[in-house]
Design a protein around this nucleic acid. Structure first.
Lengths: 267, 267
DNA sequence: CGACACCTTGAAGAGGTTCAAGAAATGTGG
DNA sequence: CCACATTTCTTGAACCTCTTCAAGGTGTCG
């Protein structure tokens, strides 16, 4: 676990990487063909190479074929895109969202450094959701057939890939619980707690968050309208639980948020 | 795909299995140590051995260590149980549900023959949800370390395991869309369509369903109260879209259900 | 046959949505 | 760097959907 404290909302410090070669053509596409070094990456305890021995680490670095930069607002992949790779987020912040035929839209998750996106594409060799960068971002591109290849040789990597997928399933179970059984205040409290918890694991403050997404995106994720999100923020401010200045949120009473989430006792 | 037509709601026909040996002690626990034969199982096109060659099929039968019968109302596994195995459903019908600390409960899915449950347990070596049999059921027990072992040798099995997990992620994305953006009628229509579609793939009717779950369980899954589920059923009956006699549902106008689900056009 | 679980329906109420208007922040082009 | 356009956020008021509470009906099983 990383213990340094970064200013809230700032990008996590990532170590300078050895750039071995840069393919200029790929570069024009935002793809950087560089030799990466997971071993130097301070996200390794959260990311793909977690739990690998130094020897195995060497080998997984071959899997990470390249880096790719994604500008704020643009897509890492979109619904319908051919699935080729998983992406480990190095810096930046993403949302994933699905759309139905009739144009309904649902944010299915927010992803930050060290987390992996693209798992949805494996079943049908096509992505079924969009991954949008909410701030300038960089990802490690991990071609999935390479991952599978190496998983067959390194059982700890195999296990880790399975855990990443299972973790996503469990996370979504939690979101279903939230969407299916919680009221607006409970949802927003749970959302804030989840966010700071994950940021804290990356060395950020436990009490301050800079939201990278709009009220509308929060609302979509939580199954609420943006006005409801805004009103609920205001309610929390009135109650002295948080301070809000636009997208800057300071949590004053973490306990109160926990109580709000777990307020269904005997109900 | 199976093309025979079974009476709706009946158990899918499963071929007689060769019973090689029966451990009487294990039997007392509901565990049957038998040599299974995926190659004879008519669920193989839906289940674990999908897409394997006959030679590979032989080998996967070693993975399926045993069978287990689960009585209606009892649990295949529960939240907190040590994770050891995935379970392929041979016969019967399950629900999975998660609970929060404060006693909230959420049905996260309904599973039928050929589907795999237990994926939630991989991350933390413990199950995080309950799997309850909604009717007498039988599952193939597949120890996960055996699956991983064999996946390292048979790449088509490896790919298949990954697809199963990815499919679950995509399914949950769909449920999030449902819970986050649909109204009661839309949710129930989507639920019914999903159910008949899956049953149809197993050789059942496209228009008749016997619900294996209560209104309350449907409601929990759809984020609605049981009264709302009941009222919405009644509304569909009034509109001539379905017929309902307790848990027997006959779909009269599939198109209307589709229209209801996709009714957000230009909204 | 009685007990129990499950389902239906009505009426009142609450929580969240919708519509609307204005304020604040952010981005853009001159 | 400022003016203007655009996006984002907040707040109010009316409305609507779903929930809650309640009562009665139906089906099932010992």
């Amino acid at each position: 676990m990383l213990e340094h404290e970064n200013p809230p909302g700032a990008c996590p410090n990532v170590p300078v990487q050895q750039v071995i070669k840069v393919d200029s053509k790929a570069n024009a596409l935002g793809v950087h063909a560089i030799k990466v070094a997971c071993s130097n990456c301070n996200l390794r305890e959260l990311c793909m190479p977690m739990g690998l021995t130094p020897t195995e680490l060497d080998r997984i670095e071959d899997v990470v074929a390249s880096r790719r930069k994604i500008k704020r607002g643009s897509l890492l992949f979109r619904n319908g895109d051919k699935f080729t790779s998983l992406y480990a987020i190095r810096t930046g912040f993403f949302k994933t969202c699905v759309a139905s035929e009739d144009g309904r839209d649902q944010v299915t998750g927010f992803q930050m450094a060290g987390e992996v996106v693209g798992l949805d594409g494996i079943v049908n060799d096509n992505h079924t959701c969009d991954a949008v960068a909410l701030e300038d971002a960089e990802v490690c591109v991990m071609p999935f057939d390479r991952i599978e290849e190496l998983s067959r040789e390194i059982s700890s990597l195999q296990r880790h890939v399975h855990k990443i997928m299972s973790r996503e399933i469990v996370r979504e179970n939690g979101v279903m619980l939230l969407l299916g059984s919680m009221r607006a205040e409970e949802r927003l409290a749970a959302f804030l707690l989840n966010l700071v918890q994950r940021l804290h694991a990356r060395g950020f403050s436990q009490s301050e968050v800079v939201l990278r997404m709009t009220r509308e995106e929060i609302g979509s994720y939580l199954g609420l309208k943006l006005e409801t999100v805004s009103r609920t923020f205001s309610k929390f401010v009135e109650d002295g639980i948080i301070e809000v200045k636009q997208r800057h949120v300071r949590i004053l009473k973490t306990d109160s948020l926990h109580e709000i989430v777990n307020s269904r006792v005997g109900h």
